[in-house]
Amino acid sequence: MTHKHAFKALEKTLKDIMSMKNPLAKDQTFSGKTVLLGGDFRQILPVILQGSRADIVLASISHSYLWDSFHKFSLKTNMRVNQDEKEFSEWLLKVGEGHPESVEEDGDDAYREQMIIIHNSLVQEFKDDSLKQVLDAAHGDVKKLKASQSSYTDKTILTPRNDTVDEINAYTISKNDGESRDYYSYDSFEISDTQSDQNDSLYAIEYLNSMEFPGLPAHKLTLKVGPPVMLL
Rank of each mutant, 00 (worst) to 15 (best):
E97M: 06
D136C: 05
A147E: 02
N82T: 01
W91M: 11
V103R: 02
T164I: 14
G140I: 02
A54N: 11
D109H: 05
E101R: 12
E167M: 10
V165P: 05
K127L: 12
I44V: 15
S148F: 00
T156S: 07
N82H: 15
F126D: 09
K127C: 13
R42F: 04
Q133T: 12
L122N: 11
I48G: 01
Q124P: 02
I48Q: 04
E105L: 14
G140V: 05
K146R: 05
N82G: 11
D84F: 05
Q114W: 14
N120Q: 12
A110E: 11
V165Y: 00
D55I: 07
Y152N: 01
E90K: 09
S64A: 08
V134H: 00
G107I: 07
I44C: 14
D84P: 00
I157D: 09
W67P: 00
G140C: 01
W91V: 08
Q124N: 08
Q114K: 14
S52D: 12
G140Y: 02
I44P: 02
D68Y: 06
V134I: 15
G107Y: 08
L75C: 06
W67L: 03
M79I: 09
D154V: 00
W67D: 00
V134M: 05
R53M: 07
S102T: 15
L58Y: 08
K76H: 13
K146M: 01
R80A: 06
D106V: 03
K72A: 03
V134K: 01
P160M: 11
R80G: 01
K144T: 13
S74L: 13
D108W: 11
S130D: 13
D55M: 07
S64W: 08
Q114Y: 15
S150G: 00
P46H: 10
D55L: 03
H63W: 00
D128N: 14
K132C: 13
K86H: 07
G107N: 12
L45M: 15
G96W: 05
K86A: 13
L66P: 01
L58T: 08
S102M: 15
F73L: 15
S148I: 08
F70K: 04
Q43W: 02
E85Y: 08
M115D: 03
I157F: 00
